[in-house]
Simulated assay, not measured.
Amino acid sequence: MTTITTEAPNVAGAIETVESHLHPTPSWDAASHPMPTGREEIWRFTPLKRFKTLLAEGGEVGTLDWSADLPEGVTVENITAEQARALAVEAPSDRISAFAARDAKHRTHINVPANAELGEPVVFTATGRGGEARDQVIITVGAHARATIVLRYTGQAHYAEKTDVIVGDGAQLNIVTLQDWQDGSVHGGQRSVQIGRDAHVKTVTASLGGDIRLQENSRYGGPGGELESYGLYFVDAGQHVQHRLFVDHNAPHTKSNVDYRGALQGKGAHSVWIGDVLIRKVAEGIETYESNKNLVLTDGCQADSVPNLEIETGEIAGAGHSSSTGRFDDQQLFYLMSRGIDEPEARRLVAHGFFIDIIRRIGVPEIEDKLLAEIERELEIVHGSTRTKADEQ
């Protein structure tokens, strides 16, 4: 068992320490995160050779090319390492994010001021031009603000990130991240979200290209906070996509709902989903549910799905989890084909139905259309097309 010390006080104002084998002790010191061997619990599903550039010392490190059209009131500024640490939700919990924080060429603070109401999404596009890049990003959303923020990663890179999102009391944030990399890209890092008192946060994470390993942590800055966390991923032959979630119910009367869905096709396609919800002793009256579903489209795929609940109090409103991995539902296919729909079209409709409940929650039409088009492209590959993402770009 590994000890976690949380820097955020519970409602009584004390710093609480808990034990979990699923999470290492956070530290800004990169030396505290030794090179993994693959035998550690948090690394045993990870093909370390693919992520070796993100785990290695030295080398020439750059940054992605960032662009955005900012609405009035939203600011972006470069900050120092000390300022980034002071603003961050928590310290890095793995070697990749520790290197990202230490070696970042640009540490960026994106700020949405209190009481702002943004009518349109703020879209940040981060483009890789090849090589290795490491970035640290802090997003703060002021009290009672309402905003949608999109982070889209594209191009080609070996990229490490340390991203923190701090949401003020009573605020509403919809944050969408799209990992839309070209083949050959590698992306790893840690994302941490703190949800203020009576705030509502919705996250949507979509992973489509490259090898990906993301640690996604959420915690609460006070009672009444709500989290909706959705994700989708499409894993091709030889690709590795790993999402590791940790929801820390460290305040009473908080809520969380997690729903991640993935589809796999091709030999060597490998997805990993680790979901952990910790309900602390102080977190009375909370509600939580986590779900992961995987749709296997061809032979030769592997989907690892591990939901966890750690409960320290029985005074809760509800807690549960579920996980499923399987092929197309034969009854659904039979139903559609019995009404004159050929098999490829029937499979397309089933796959759309599998993902559409997640896609419709994004709330950004441009991204929704992009994901629907990507699903169409992937299904064409399944049915014999030889096109790849690189061919289209």
Rank of each mutant, 00 (worst) to 15 (best):
I4R: 11
A116Q: 12
I139H: 00
Q190C: 04
S271H: 05
Y289G: 00
S256Q: 09
L336H: 03
D342M: 03
Y220A: 07
G59M: 00
G225D: 09
T163M: 14
D299E: 14
H243V: 12
I166H: 08
V122S: 06
T288A: 15
L232P: 02
S291G: 10
D135C: 10
P121T: 12
L336D: 07
I195R: 03
A100D: 02
L372H: 11
Q156S: 13
V247E: 08
S185L: 00
R197D: 12
D135V: 09
N217C: 09
R361V: 03
S229W: 02
V123C: 11
A14R: 12
A237S: 15
G222V: 11
G184L: 00
G130Y: 04
I110H: 01
R146S: 15
H106W: 10
W273T: 00
L264D: 10
A100S: 09
F328P: 00
S323L: 06
T80L: 06
E284W: 04
G326F: 06
T46I: 11
G221T: 07
S97C: 03
G188F: 03
V364H: 03
E378R: 13
R387D: 12
E82W: 10
V272P: 00
H109K: 08
T148A: 06
L371P: 02
E19A: 09
Q265T: 12
I341D: 01
L118C: 07
Y220H: 10
N292D: 14
L295D: 02
T2V: 02
V123L: 15
S271F: 04
F354S: 04
E310S: 13
P34G: 04
G262Q: 08
D183N: 11
A283Q: 05
D391H: 10
H23Q: 13
A126R: 08
Q332I: 13
W28Q: 09
L214I: 14
A98E: 00
S324I: 09
I96K: 01
V277Q: 13
N292T: 14
V74M: 06
T313D: 06
I79P: 02
A126D: 01
R213I: 05
D94I: 00
G300D: 11
S20D: 11
G170L: 02
I139M: 09
D391R: 00
E120H: 08
K281S: 14
H109W: 15
L151I: 06
A116N: 11
G222P: 08
P113G: 14
R152L: 10
S32L: 02
L48C: 12
V122G: 05
P365F: 01
L379C: 03
R39N: 14
S20Q: 08
Q242R: 07
K105V: 05
N174M: 03
D29P: 02
E7I: 13
A126K: 01
